[in-house]
Amino acid sequence: MSERNELEKVPGLMVPGLLPAARYPLTAGYWIAADEGRLVIQRCTECGTHRHPPAPACYRCQSFQWDWHQVSGAGQIFSYTWVHAALTQAFVATVPYNVCVVELADTDGVRIASTVTGVNEGDDLIGSRVQGYFADAGGGNKLLLFAGA
């Protein structure tokens, strides 16, 4: 996945407290891969089932064995919202912004929250094909965003 600089369109990134912290044992691997521009999803090495957000055991076979599986970042928008009410001063400049639920290809129906860039409010987004990419979020963090595929 390529990197683009569209920070000004992405809410939250300027709020230090909102930066994704790679400090939790189960999730650190996701953010380390993100720093390298790779999207990884936790996968059970016993039965192959993906899960997100990370959990210690597989919901399908209860195995504790897992690895990080790199996926393409291709996906489809499953649902979305446009946020208009800024909850804090930090969001005032970015509203309205969208939060989309993206169902990732190459997984067992794993869906993740993200922001899709290059779309407009009023667009019928559900079902749209999108491609993930990482943007520099500052503070040494990279954040997964999506754009139309």
Partner: peptide
């Protein structure tokens, strides 16, 4: 939101908080 602003997002919310969810 208050947790986020103090850098205290729970593990799962680190995947939604940065997007303003």
């Amino acid at each position: 939101v208050e947790k986020a602003l103090t850098g205290d997002l729970s593990e799962d919310l680190t995947f939604s908080g940065p997007y303003g969810l």
